[in-house]
């Protein structure tokens, strides 16, 4: 099982967590009801203590093993400094304004793009969003410089496998001046990145 983009992952997560939520609420409700009953209720399943502990450990650790194998951007993120991107977009941010950011970016299907965003003053975020508002990916953009005064990088690699037009937003609060008087973010960039050349179901044509 592999997720080719965040939309698939989020849908899977929605279903899985909803099932879990219904299950845990039902178990405690069943439990609460039977606590008051005089007749000895027969357990639906008998879970020995150490099996339960094993389940918790397996759940906690196994979850990460599952995502490492099923979500492609995890290993790509860890080894990103060894991967040569197809293109790099490097720009800065200061006083709630993107500086040196290309007006529009077009990406061919399957390309791996590096985004390197550097902050001159505050903590910001960099996130790509679909037209329905759902998140493609995000990272924090921390300010800071090295000993030579060069701004610290905040870099991420992303491989695009689905066509789409994506907006940019800062995903971290950086003070009320990020917004105009009506409450709209000045850092919101509509239709900033477009992915072309993918099949309808995703992947290269």
């Amino acid at each position: 099982m592999t997720f080719s983009n965040s939309a698939e992952l989020l849908s899977f997560h929605w279903v899985a967590y909803t099932i879990y939520a219904i299950l845990i609420i039902s178990v405690i409700a069943w439990f609460g009801y039977n606590l008051t009953q005089k007749e000895r209720v027969k357990s639906i399943v008998r879970i020995p203590f150490y099996t339960y502990i094993g389940f918790l450990v397996a759940g906690g650790v196994g979850h990460h093993i599952f995502t490492y194998n099923a979500i492609p951007w995890v290993s790509q993120d860890i080894t990103r400094h060894e991967i040569k991107p197809d293109a790099t977009y490097k720009f800065e941010v200061e006083k709630h304004k993107w500086i040196g950011m290309p007006k529009k970016v077009t990406v061919e299907c399957g390309q791996t793009i590096e985004f390197d965003v550097r902050s001159r003053d505050l903590v910001y975020g960099f996130g790509l969003f679909r037209q329905d508002g759902s998140m493609v990916m995000q990272m924090q953009v921390n300010p800071g410089t090295d000993v030579n005064g060069i701004l610290d990088p905040n870099d991420i690699l992303w491989t695009f496998n689905h066509n789409g037009v994506f907006d940019v937003m800062s995903t971290e609060y950086s003070g009320p001046r990020e917004y105009d008087e009506e409450g709209h973010s000045k850092m919101y960039v509509k239709n900033w990145l477009e992915v072309v050349g993918c099949k309808e179901e995703g992947g290269k044509k």
Partner: peptide, 20 residues
């Protein structure tokens, strides 16, 4: 409900699309 919701996000893969 709340503890697993956080454990799910405390993951490098999930956090990329759920952080903040």
């Amino acid at each position: 409900l709340a503890v697993p919701a956080a454990i799910i996000q405390a993951d490098m893969g999930m956090n990329r699309v759920l952080h903040n």
